[in-house]
Design a protein around this nucleic acid. Structure first.
Lengths: 220, 220
DNA sequence: CTATAATGTGACCAGTCGGTCATATGACTT
DNA sequence: AAGTCATATGACCGACTGGTCACATTATAG
């Protein structure tokens, strides 16, 4: 956390420094953010910076708490439209309120995302080619599936492609994160438990989370 | 692309260098990867490195093509179990073959993911706290929803939480990437088109991609 | 007005970075 | 043996890094 010295600063100076830091993180991420540049852009000296903060990680952590605080305030001020919503309606409200929040603080949110999502955001163009290729394949699959009557035609193609990509990435990331912890990743991937997990994920992609009439009937 | 000099190298040396680079990217990502360390760890001189490659981006691009090449070979050698699969079965096969591939080349895949997913992988612990808090909320929502008979009880709670998190992140990322391109992000977020897009995403989360009997009946 | 404490400053440190280049090596040709 | 040419080397460069510290400035108190 920042030292008291920083918190005592007049609001204007406080904000100038914080904004310079936010811009720096947004542009360079955490590791490559330069304290020298932050200092230069906020018009304070190097020494002051280290009087205010432990180091740049300290600054970033502070920015995180600012975000968290703003978010809590924002959600507290925004009441759900109705008291009697089911879970899906409530989730939808949460998502949409989150969107409103994000677009109210785009720079702040972007800076933090830049750190979390990392260089990928920047070098994204490099892989755009591969992504486009993969998505072309998905597109063909979906079109064919709609023709065959397998996929709900009210879902448009672009959206379906995005969904397949999302699932594909989510599963890859899951496998990577969990798998790297295992001694024998190959054995783990092939284990009944892991396979079952994947099956369930894909099942939800197919049929969704909601309990429907047909599930009662079919007894799935 | 690497210069011919590099491609002429005896396989052993070629692999040593590439492995050192893969390890470096896996540990430090793209921007913070150090050519000095790669050179030291692969036992070649600084000069040689620049005789082999333009720069470190060149190395990374080469590693990408290696991955792509290996993947193509892997998929070509793995035939689908059956010719008559529907789209969902085929997608499932693709995902599982992809998993097999990833666990066959974990270091290679991890290094590339480290670059794409970025520092977040490393500093992940910092945000673990926030994530856990958010997921606790999701967990309660899901449990309640199952009690109410809104969510399919055959989907277990952990999985449902992961799914909500995935959707939540996917939508945030989408809004962030698309939204930052707009002049007036607030206006864009509130536009009917954007809202409809989100509605459709959440609809699919609820009901899945597959066309079901009930959809025919309900005429959705 | 003086003394004390708090805050602000930037030259400076040791270290790392990506990248260059004059020189050395060694295999192959004449 | 002499000459040629691709390859290999590491000292060296300027730029930048995060971080320190002796000193300057300002605010507060007696």
């Amino acid at each position: 956390m920042p030292k008291q010295t920083f918190l005592n600063l007049p609001k204007e100076k406080h904000d100038t420094i914080l904004n310079a830091a936010i811009d720096e993180f947004a542009q360079y991420g955490l590791e490559n953010a330069s304290t020298n540049r932050i200092v230069a852009n906020s018009g304070i000296s190097k020494g002051s910076f280290y009087q205010y903060f432990e180091d740049k990680l300290d600054v970033f952590k502070y920015i995180l708490t600012v975000l968290e605080h703003e978010k809590i305030v924002f959600f507290k001020d925004t009441h759900p439209p109705s008291r009697n919503m089911d879970t899906f309606q409530y989730f939808r409200w949460m998502i949409k309120t989150g969107m409103e929040f994000n677009s109210s603080y785009p720079r702040l949110v972007y800076a933090i995302s830049r750190v979390l999502l990392g260089e990928g955001l920047y070098y994204g163009q490099m892989f755009a080619e591969n992504r486009i290729k993969a998505n072309k394949a998905f597109e063909m699959m979906i079109k064919q599936a709609i023709e065959r009557g397998e996929v709900d035609p009210s879902v448009d193609v672009d959206l379906a492609v995005m969904i397949m990509e999302t699932w594909s990435n989510a599963i890859s990331t899951y496998i990577l994160n969990e798998g790297m912890k295992q001694k024998d990743i190959m054995k783990w991937v092939r284990s009944a438990k892991t396979q079952e997990k994947i099956d369930k994920m894909l099942y939800v992609m197919e049929y969704g989370l909601r309990k429907t009439e047909s599930q009662f009937v079919a007894g799935i």
